[in-house]
Write a protein that binds this DNA or RNA. Structure first.
Lengths: 218, 218
DNA sequence: ATTATTTTTTAGGTTTGCCTAAATTAAAAA
DNA sequence: TTTTTAATTTAGGCAAACCTAAAAAATAAT
């Protein structure tokens, strides 16, 4: 019943690549994000398929079964609860937590997750603003928009950012955090970079590559 | 530089078997406590020896090198800090923590250990009364005695108990915890069991098998 | 001091998860 | 539609950590 760490990581990766698009994820995409080779991925897909955790047709990519998605969501739950713990209790910076949470998410203990959740008072979002799935794996999704899709001169509030240490360090440096108020002053039509007003105070130019990792609400 | 979980467990086991006796531990003893077979142990000993973590002569048992002891002590440190966390913060009972701590002790992150220690306010003893090694692996040892070595009609205070869930549940049931006051009323000369007075209130008969897992101070 | 018993080691296998190189299939280009 | 390119899978290997069975060494018993 208990999966290996490697299998858990595959499930998590497949979930991440299929939730937004609803499309099957390819062997190569999995290999790239996991830092393994395509051949290794194929091999693992066969095992996960035999366990009915994924739907896999040769050469056609993969999606999760309900059972696989459920398992993946509970790993995400653990990851995000631990991230919250690291920041709120142990005073980690948000760019320091990823690596540690990647380890902690694989600790197997239902009672631990329950009590950690209780101790943290049932948090709903992790330090990057990502929603924490509940005990059953259910996730409440909110309507947010990528910053690079917001029209000029609209004000919005930062709701979440991608979990990438480099990005997080950069955002801290320019003063963007969850809850920051952003106004897109203008979009450069050549490179799609944005001129932002942050919290009504500072103007900063950010690339569209950064902007697409920032999700906001009007 | 980073060892596998399996290697860490071997180091820990070797430490546990060599600290009190100062004698080399045998292949079979290691196999028994780890739940593996002697052949597997021999194989691993060769690897640990090649890494200069243990001193190993064929057929002659094993001891740790300074480097190996240092590593083992830092794993113990993590184990005991996590145990303290589980009991003090997450409200685990002391008989529930072992299995989880066995997993948590293998999380690799120096910064995590430092900040956990800070968060817990630098605790000196884990929930069973075992001393927590400091950041350098140093452990302060206190003079304690096994309860079965205490003379009749002497009063003493419980300082530590062995980390075995069954034992811990039993001790809870009869009302013994760290700090309890015990008086050995009499020792049965046939089976060496002890009649105890606990906290000046309850009388309980305890086998010597239990008593040797309870360490006390006068 | 031999012999018998127990302990430890060696030899040869298994599983998991990774790899490279070659073969196959699918997709894109001519 | 055929050819070329790209993606994927298969085949065959490797390291880690376990195993069983057989051989060797150490210890205990006669």
């Amino acid at each position: 019943m208990t999966n290996t760490i490697s299998k858990e990581n595959y499930l998590k990766t497949i979930l991440q690549h299929t939730t937004d698009t609803n499309e099957p994820v390819t062997t190569n995409d999995i290999a790239n994000t996991m830092g393994t080779k395509a051949a290794s991925v194929t091999e693992m897909l066969k095992k996960l398929s035999a366990q009915k955790l994924i739907k896999y047709k040769k050469y056609k990519g993969v999606t999760l079964t309900n059972s696989g998605r459920q398992q993946a969501l509970l790993i995400i739950r653990k990851h995000r609860l631990w991230e919250y713990f690291l920041v709120e209790k142990l005073k980690f910076r948000w760019d320091e937590i990823h690596e540690v949470a990647e380890q902690l998410e694989h600790i197997q203990s239902d009672i631990l997750v329950d009590r950690l959740n209780l101790f943290l008072e049932n948090p709903q979002f992790d330090p990057h603003g990502a929603p924490i799935p509940n005990k059953k794996g259910a996730i409440k999704k909110s309507e947010t928009f990528k910053l690079n899709e917001v029209r000029d001169n609209k004000e919005s509030i930062v709701k979440s950012v991608s979990d990438q240490p480099d990005l997080l360090r950069y955002l801290s440096k320019i003063g963007i955090s969850i809850g920051s108020k952003l106004k897109v002053i203008e979009q450069n039509s050549f490179d799609q970079s944005l001129l932002l007003l942050i919290n009504n105070k500072v103007k900063v130019q950010v690339s569209s590559d950064i902007a697409k990792h920032i999700r906001v609400q009007p």
